[in-house]
Simulated assay, not measured.
Amino acid sequence: MNSDAVTRGLLFLSLTAAGVPGNAVVICAFISAAFHEGRLSPADAIVLHLASSNLMVVGVRCLLEVLATFDIYNVFDDSGCRAVIFIYRTSRSLSIWLTFVLSVYQCLSVAPPGSRWASARVLLAQNLPLVFLCLWLINTSMSVAPLLFAVGARSDSKLLQNGINVEFCFLSFPSRLSRDANGAAQVGRDVVPMALMAAASLVLLVFLLRHSRRAKGLRGQGARRGPSAERRAALTVVTLVTLYLLFYGVDNGLWVYTLSVPQTLSSSLVSDLRIFFSSLYAAVSPLVIIVSNKKVSKQLNCGKQPKTISDTEQPGD
């Protein structure tokens, strides 16, 4: 095994080692909270679904990449390639859109009571099951290409004519038009929530700045110190969105590069970098949630901390 393969395997192993237990801890913490409290808030439910999608990303794609790289187990025959890439693309896009829904919900949560935006937040909370169902249907239907065109990697020059090399597999499209159309649909599916959640994050940042100035003015009048639950929740969402824009921005840039160059020049290294950066969000985001979320921290402390009156609702709080 050459050094490049070892480096590749270790990188994906690091994502698996961070992402699988991290997302599993977040999921277990919210399930425990739901068991003890009898319900999950809308923000809790969104973060729980986000962690589940991230777990599928790192558990299905990254873990299997590690096993195949070190010749421990290889599932990447034709059927395995179709299943793995389909699950990976579906869970990856779900992770993106759930982050967008979380940013919108948190943005609406800072709206003044009685306003139209506050009413929209209530409407979103009441229809979350329908939102989740729609996201599953949309992202599943937009990820069917691997079921039709994915094949196991083998030396066949015909696969490279209109295909995409993803290391252990090829996506072999019948024509360049179908390949480019599928690529454009994938980019559009990511760019739309990217632009919208960036706008929502700007609103949150403006709110945080105004809130900080107001808090400084009140501090001399005996206002409590330390970040409020509302501010902590907003900072968590802004951090998650920033990570999304960074990692998935690189991912989509590499994807556009893959579509724009001849396939003979598009090596598996570009595909490895795409998978690494898109999976990096799934591995890092649970760490952000664990560090910043009081409810998850409380569950991890096994109830050692005394119970207090519930804070203002935050993502997973």
Rank of each mutant, 00 (worst) to 15 (best):
76 F>W: 13
124 L>M: 15
73 Y>V: 11
54 N>T: 05
51 A>G: 06
55 L>D: 02
47 V>Q: 06
55 L>M: 12
62 C>Q: 02
90 T>P: 00
40 L>Q: 10
95 S>Q: 12
107 C>G: 11
136 W>G: 01
108 L>V: 09
70 F>Y: 15
63 L>Y: 00
136 W>N: 12
94 L>E: 14
105 Y>E: 13
110 V>H: 10
88 Y>I: 06
63 L>I: 01
116 R>W: 13
78 D>N: 15
133 L>Y: 12
95 S>H: 05
46 I>N: 00
45 A>M: 08
48 L>W: 07
96 I>P: 00
127 N>F: 09
114 G>S: 12
98 L>P: 04
81 C>E: 10
32 S>P: 03
93 S>G: 03
53 S>D: 03
83 A>P: 04
83 A>K: 06
25 V>F: 05
139 N>W: 01
55 L>G: 04
36 H>Q: 14
126 Q>C: 04
102 L>S: 07
83 A>M: 12
66 V>W: 02
107 C>S: 15
113 P>E: 14
101 V>Y: 08
96 I>W: 08
24 A>R: 02
45 A>P: 00
79 S>L: 14
56 M>Q: 07
38 G>A: 02
124 L>A: 12
123 L>E: 09
105 Y>V: 01
35 F>C: 09
37 E>D: 14
53 S>T: 06
29 A>W: 01
58 V>G: 02
55 L>Q: 05
30 F>A: 03
105 Y>N: 14
109 S>K: 03
112 P>I: 05
110 V>Q: 07
20 V>Q: 01
47 V>S: 07
37 E>H: 15
23 N>D: 04
63 L>C: 03
60 V>I: 14
89 R>E: 15
135 L>G: 12
41 S>K: 06
92 R>G: 12
95 S>T: 13
72 I>Y: 03
112 P>D: 15
34 A>M: 10
115 S>M: 09
118 A>I: 02
64 L>W: 00
119 S>D: 13
82 R>Y: 06
68 A>L: 01
99 T>H: 08
104 V>N: 07
108 L>T: 10
107 C>R: 09
141 S>L: 13
81 C>V: 12
87 I>P: 00
62 C>T: 10
131 V>G: 11
91 S>P: 05
21 P>L: 01
115 S>A: 10
132 F>K: 03
67 L>S: 03
44 D>G: 14
112 P>E: 15
96 I>M: 11
89 R>K: 07
103 S>C: 08
100 F>T: 11
43 A>F: 02
31 I>G: 05
